[in-house]
Design a protein around this nucleic acid. Structure first.
Length: 221
DNA sequence: CGCCAGGGCCTCA
DNA sequence: TGAGGCCATGGC
């Protein structure tokens, strides 16, 4: 059985760097961004994406983000000033639009009150607590925001990660989020870019090899 | 037609 | 604390 460092090497060799967030934003919205420094507008766009992509394909999310941008609403104030009903209509393609419109409102007011600059100085544990306290932000969304928007070294677990690990016999099928996260973080070097890429690679691999049962992660066995 | 997507909340044991 | 229902569009 391969360990999780080896699995990373195999995946990156096969799929290459993913440069996930803000991928779409880089291409369509931020032509000058080259993966170096995020400004607060980009950070907020990552937050929006993390909400919209909950249990939803990224394709559908992209449409919603582009629609928001087209309406000049892809910002904290843009979200705040837009009636929730109207917001829901704009993000329709992302599904669960009523829930997600409410969630966008909630995170927007949170970041309006607590600026990114101030929040970025918080320790990671404290910041994670603050995010988890928001309605609509669970562990995966919180960790995605921490890793991709705040660039904090935390490993994101998702359904794919869990399925892959249990399939490979690395963890139990009913392993908890925190348990699996601890396992990754205990065995991996704590590095933001590395964590960002690893999570994205798991998703990339799952998309190609893991849409339907029976699962075959053959290259990883 | 059914199944799934870069989840999380609520309810009920 | 965990299982199950619910939210909803779009791709295949």
């Amino acid at each position: 059985m391969k360990n999780i460092n080896t699995i990373y090497s195999i995946l990156v060799k096969k799929y290459g760097l993913q440069n996930w967030w803000p991928t779409t934003l880089e291409k369509d919205l931020h032509p000058t961004y080259h993966g170096r420094t995020l400004n607060d507008k980009m950070r907020f766009e990552v937050v929006v994406g993390s909400i919209l992509t909950q249990n939803t394909s990224w394709k559908n999310v992209e449409k919603a983000i582009i629609a928001l941008n087209k309406g000049k609403l892809l910002s904290i104030n843009g979200i705040l000033k837009t009636p929730q009903k109207k917001l829901a209509a704009i993000i329709r393609s992302a599904g669960y639009f009523n829930q997600k419109a409410e969630r966008l409102k909630i995170v927007a007011s949170f970041f309006a009150k607590n600026g990114f600059k101030k929040l970025k100085k918080e320790r990671i544990g404290k910041l994670r607590e603050l995010l988890l306290a928001l309605k609509g932000i669970g562990p995966e969304t919180a960790d995605s925001i921490l890793l991709y928007a705040f660039e904090k070294p935390i490993f994101v677990i998702d359904a794919y990660t869990k399925r892959m690990c249990s399939y490979l016999g690395i963890c139990k099928k009913d392993v908890s989020y925190d348990e699996l996260q601890q396992m990754f973080m205990k065995k991996l070097k704590h590095n933001v870019k590395f964590f960002q890429e690893y999570h994205a690679l798991i998703v990339a691999h799952a998309k190609n090899h893991y849409s339907k049962k029976p699962y075959h992660y053959s290259i990883l066995k």
